[in-house]
Measured scan of single mutants.
Amino acid sequence: MDVFMKGLSKAKEGVVAAAEKTKQGVAEAAGKTKEGVLYVGSKTKEGVVHGVATVAEKTKEQVTNVGGAVVTGVTAVAQKTVEGAGSIAAATGFVKKDQLGKNEEGAPQEGILEDMPVDPDNEAYEMPSEEGYQDYEPEA
């Protein structure tokens, strides 16, 4: 019985440690998101679009440190934060509304985080759909 109880105690310690790591990862992701939003706020009209992409990228980098179902929630929060940063930029006159959601080359930025393969159960990952990809044929 002692062996059984000791095993359960060790398992509990492992769960607590994993929860603490997840909590730490979420806190880091939130900190990076805040950094990115402050970065966007300090940019001029020309830099705002690039700044919004930076927020998304920093958040995406930190999301990889967070495991399990938390990833889905962090990704949703990050996307809403990026959308909010863009709205703030438009409201303050840093950028025109028609410039939001495009990178410096004018290509749409939507789907940055949505296409990231995420499995809350950590069982399997699927690649994003290939609808947006084109076949590449090298020139002879």
Rank of each mutant, 00 (worst) to 15 (best):
residue 1 M to Y: 00
residue 2 D to V: 01
residue 3 V to W: 03
residue 3 V to M: 10
residue 5 M to D: 00
residue 6 K to N: 06
residue 8 L to V: 03
residue 8 L to G: 00
residue 9 S to I: 14
residue 9 S to F: 15
residue 10 K to V: 10
residue 10 K to N: 06
residue 10 K to P: 00
residue 11 A to Y: 15
residue 12 K to N: 01
residue 12 K to L: 15
residue 13 E to H: 08
residue 13 E to A: 08
residue 15 V to G: 03
residue 15 V to R: 00
residue 15 V to C: 04
residue 15 V to H: 00
residue 16 V to D: 02
residue 16 V to C: 07
residue 20 E to T: 10
residue 22 T to M: 14
residue 22 T to Y: 12
residue 23 K to Q: 02
residue 23 K to A: 08
residue 23 K to L: 06
residue 29 A to K: 06
residue 32 K to T: 05
residue 32 K to M: 03
residue 33 T to M: 14
residue 33 T to Q: 00
residue 35 E to F: 12
residue 38 L to S: 01
residue 40 V to D: 00
residue 43 K to T: 08
residue 44 T to I: 04
residue 44 T to Q: 00
residue 45 K to W: 15
residue 46 E to P: 04
residue 47 G to M: 14
residue 47 G to E: 02
residue 49 V to K: 07
residue 49 V to H: 00
residue 50 H to R: 15
residue 53 A to V: 14
residue 56 A to P: 06
residue 57 E to M: 11
residue 57 E to C: 08
residue 57 E to D: 06
residue 58 K to F: 02
residue 59 T to G: 07
residue 59 T to F: 15
residue 59 T to E: 01
residue 59 T to Y: 00
residue 60 K to F: 05
residue 60 K to A: 09
residue 60 K to V: 14
residue 63 V to I: 10
residue 64 T to A: 08
residue 64 T to I: 08
residue 65 N to H: 08
residue 65 N to D: 04
residue 66 V to T: 05
residue 67 G to V: 11
residue 68 G to R: 15
residue 69 A to S: 07
residue 70 V to R: 01
residue 70 V to L: 12
residue 72 T to K: 08
residue 73 G to R: 13
residue 73 G to S: 05
residue 75 T to Y: 14
residue 76 A to R: 06
residue 76 A to Q: 12
residue 77 V to W: 15
residue 78 A to G: 09
residue 78 A to C: 07
residue 79 Q to F: 07
residue 80 K to C: 07
residue 81 T to C: 15
residue 82 V to C: 13
residue 83 E to W: 04
residue 84 G to R: 06
residue 84 G to K: 08
residue 85 A to M: 13
residue 86 G to S: 11
residue 86 G to I: 08
residue 87 S to Y: 10
residue 87 S to W: 01
residue 87 S to A: 11
residue 89 A to D: 04
residue 91 A to R: 02
residue 92 T to G: 08
residue 93 G to L: 04
residue 93 G to R: 08
residue 93 G to K: 04
residue 96 K to L: 14
residue 98 D to C: 11
residue 98 D to E: 05
residue 99 Q to I: 10
residue 100 L to R: 02
residue 101 G to K: 11
residue 103 N to I: 03
residue 103 N to P: 03
residue 106 G to V: 12
residue 106 G to K: 11
residue 106 G to W: 13
residue 107 A to R: 09
residue 107 A to I: 07
residue 107 A to F: 12
residue 107 A to Q: 10
residue 109 Q to G: 02
residue 110 E to P: 04
residue 112 I to N: 09
residue 113 L to P: 02
residue 113 L to S: 13
residue 114 E to N: 08
residue 114 E to G: 11
residue 115 D to N: 13
residue 117 P to R: 04
residue 120 P to R: 10
residue 120 P to T: 04
residue 121 D to S: 13
residue 124 A to D: 05
residue 124 A to M: 04
residue 125 Y to S: 14
residue 126 E to P: 11
residue 126 E to A: 05
residue 126 E to C: 14
residue 127 M to K: 13
residue 127 M to L: 13
residue 130 E to L: 04
residue 130 E to R: 02
residue 131 E to T: 09
residue 133 Y to R: 12
residue 133 Y to L: 11
residue 133 Y to T: 09
residue 133 Y to G: 07
residue 134 Q to W: 10
residue 135 D to H: 13
residue 137 E to Q: 10
residue 137 E to M: 11
residue 138 P to C: 04
residue 139 E to V: 08
residue 139 E to I: 13
